Simulated assay, not measured.
Amino acid sequence: MFDGVEEQDWVAPVEVLSLAGRASGGALTTTMVTTGRPATVTCSYGTRVEVARGWSPHEADVLVVPGGGYADQAGPGVRRLIADQQFLRRLAAADVLHVGICTGVMVLSAAGLTRGRNATTHTAARADLAAQGATVVNARVVDDGDLVTGGGITSGLDVALWLAERFLGARVTQRVETILEYERRGTVWRA
């Protein structure tokens, strides 16, 4: 979580993964974190969220990086994360499943995690992703092993449902889809 984060990019994964955790009897837990210290984060449309924890690379198996603010070079959003070399080094060194939603993928790219890899991002950032060495796949969700990426803003729903299926199976995931009254769109592109 960071100032300028797109609401839908993080709300959808938190909702889906939290429901999957409940549906699986706690086999999965979800924690919102900031890039540094606990803080109040102001999202792209003004929603304010208290985030009680800072990110520690050793406390998670999966890290979901949402997007937001990519088009605004000077404002809050992913551009500030991309400029934070210390954070990018921590991100690149983390032994986690790296997951990017929308332009959060561009943060993973800035950390060198998409170079030579199959990935997708928001349509407005795909040319930049390709220029940074990724093999851009025109898909809503791309699973390249230890890197999972999602396209535009609402793809966070589909990415999180894919993660639930990948780790907890189809039965739990179908239950979550039923509760949300949402069916995944498209096929997950897998390497």
Rank of each mutant, 00 (worst) to 15 (best):
190 R>C: 09
28 L>K: 05
171 R>M: 12
40 T>F: 05
82 I>L: 02
17 L>M: 04
19 L>Q: 00
181 E>N: 10
24 S>H: 04
174 Q>W: 10
78 V>L: 08
125 A>Q: 07
22 R>K: 14
182 Y>C: 12
116 G>N: 11
99 V>K: 00
135 T>F: 07
83 A>S: 15
107 V>M: 08
61 D>H: 14
163 L>F: 05
12 A>E: 04
44 S>H: 08
30 T>G: 03
42 T>R: 15
122 H>T: 08
184 R>T: 12
87 F>I: 04
54 G>M: 05
25 G>S: 12
122 H>R: 09
37 R>K: 14
109 S>N: 02
24 S>F: 01
67 G>T: 10
174 Q>T: 12
84 D>I: 11
118 N>D: 11
144 D>Q: 04
135 T>N: 15
112 G>K: 09
169 G>I: 08
59 E>S: 12
68 G>D: 01
157 L>S: 07
57 P>K: 14
112 G>L: 08
8 Q>T: 15
103 T>F: 00
48 R>L: 09
135 T>W: 03
29 T>S: 15
129 L>C: 11
34 T>F: 09
65 V>Y: 05
104 G>M: 07
37 R>L: 06
135 T>Q: 08
49 V>A: 13
97 L>Q: 03
145 G>C: 05
63 L>T: 13
173 T>P: 04
185 R>P: 04
4 G>Q: 02
121 T>C: 15
101 I>G: 03
90 R>P: 10
130 A>D: 12
4 G>W: 02
107 V>H: 03
146 D>W: 10
176 V>I: 12
23 A>W: 03
72 D>I: 02
